[in-house]
Design a protein around this nucleic acid. Structure first.
Lengths: 147, 147
DNA sequence: TATTGTTATACTCTATAACTATA
DNA sequence: TATAGTTATAGAGTATAACAATA
């Protein structure tokens, strides 16, 4: 009953469940997954131009305009002027936005602990090593295909 | 550098990459992920009422109407009358729809092989076992939370 | 009355193209 | 001319509510 198909299926199943759970948690904070991605990017980079976000998240500039509109409307970020380039807007987390990002990151950390803590360390190590090998294979495959 | 956070992050990363890759493959066949889910459900169940699909996929009846509209328009399924209940429409794969579903399933099988074949069997077994344990823990967590 | 599916309406994410302001 | 961001427009997925046809 074990084998490659099972291994892949279970991996994707876990990801689906974790993502659904994260979506529910985000919703209670008034966020969506896309908006949370923006907020996390700011959490790691600090205030940045919208252009930087559209490049980092690989979405259109238009899309970032909409996501930032929504985050401004719900109080997670503000648009600040760039000190020298008047074309640029610096998307800046509010106090609330920064706190929320930190809380969500902590929640993810807690989830990781709940899922993996207490297992034999060598088994978790094997798990991660297999995953790294699979990721490397996957990247090789798509690099070859995408050419 | 290893630990619960890394294990969870890598898992989600692989899922994101695989899903992006599947989306690209689906797009070349004229499908989206949601529409492919419907098609797969039909692949496994055969012709079913739309109600069955909305229950199985956990989406609204309205949403199924839209997805089936799109699949009909692109030639993957037809709507057939139910033999005895005139309220019901039986969503039925076309020849093209059935072939496409089979091809996609084969592609996923090939991907699983490419990612896991040739690894020591006991490592893949450990990988799957850890995943099963994590899935069990996750379900327990959410069962407790959702009450 | 209850169920199946559709129509009406709305929100979110996404994209491309045209445009404005600035560099 | 090139870049940053917005407006205009469109398509996909999703939801709830009201409704028609049928059971």
């Amino acid at each position: 009953m074990t084998g490659p198909d099972t291994a892949l299926d279970r991996t994707l199943e876990l990801a689906v469940l974790v993502n659904e759970d994260m979506d529910r948690a985000l919703a209670t904070d008034g966020l969506t997954r896309s908006r949370a991605h923006v907020l996390f990017e700011l959490h790691h980079r600090g205030p940045v131009p919208q252009r930087t976000l559209s490049t980092a998240l690989q979405v259109s500039a238009r899309n970032i305009t909409g996501l930032v509109d929504a985050l401004v409307a719900t109080g997670f970020v503000t648009r600040e002027p760039h000190p020298t380039d008047r074309r640029v807007v610096l998307v800046t987390p509010t106090e609330h936005g920064a706190r929320t990002a930190a809380t969500l990151a902590a929640g993810r950390h807690q989830l990781a602990s709940a899922l993996f803590d207490g297992m034999p360390a060598n088994r978790v190590a094997t798990y991660t090593e297999v995953l790294d090998e699979v990721l490397a294979r996957f990247r090789e495959l798509t690099a070859a295909t995408a050419r």
